[in-house]
Amino acid sequence: MTALSKSWERAVVPLFILVAWEIVSRSGLFPVALLPPPSAVLHSWGDWVFGYDETTQANSGRWLADALSSATRVAAGYAIAAVSGVLLGIAIGWWRWVERTIEPTIQMLRPVPPVSWIPLAIIWFGIANKPAIFLVFLGAFFPILMNTIHGVKTADRNLIRAASMMGATEQQLLRHVVFPAALPSIFAGLRIGIGAAWMLTVTAEMVAVKSGLGYVLWDSYYFLRYDLVLAAMASIGLLGFATDGLIKLLMSAALHWQRASTLQSREG
């Protein structure tokens, strides 16, 4: 199959949804203000990005700044979550005493929805980047941690035996055997984590921050600008899609050795 017909396949469902939506919206079934057609959303989105006719008023031409401030929060919180989640996950998965001492606490914190931390986050960090970064961290940390633990615990014992037979120290086992063996799981966690990170940035921006895509979304809701609400939602979706794509790219580079043996390699 050619590359062109493949990308066509990807576009079929979104195109169908857009066309159906446009038709429903223009049919007069609902007030246009409540469900603006994609064409109107696109128009407002365009002005938000490029600022050509100020239909979005104060937001006109501010998209890049908004997207960047959201993305920065995601990047900061996610990076902290990734590093700490992987390191702690390896420690919990490898050393029984770490598991015994730390895991119960973590398992108690895990079911607490990150959103419920918002009041504390605001008292502790004020209204700025920090509470949002903290929330992103909370959202991304647990899936990364849990998957890392799982990856370490399911690492093939025989590989560890083989490596210790070649004189590997404990630290070398962790670095040269356990970490690479856990990498497929770690990446699964990283991919779940990036989705959670975007969700929580937007949530934090609705409540605790005065900039970013989530802030524009919530602010537009107060002014009944549903076209902008939809444009903000689409922006978040697109950015989330793009960052996930980035992680997938990283993953296929790091896990290229899997290609010959897994379903990933299946064509068609």
Binding site: N158, L159, A162, A163, M165, G167, H176, P180
Partner: peptide
């Protein structure tokens, strides 16, 4: 007193690092 590189071992399964 433990596994070490003075003895080579070949296992029933080859136990190769699949990422290398």
């Amino acid at each position: 007193d433990g596994p070490g590189a003075d003895r080579g071992m070949v296992f029933q399964q080859a136990n190769l690092m699949p990422w290398l």
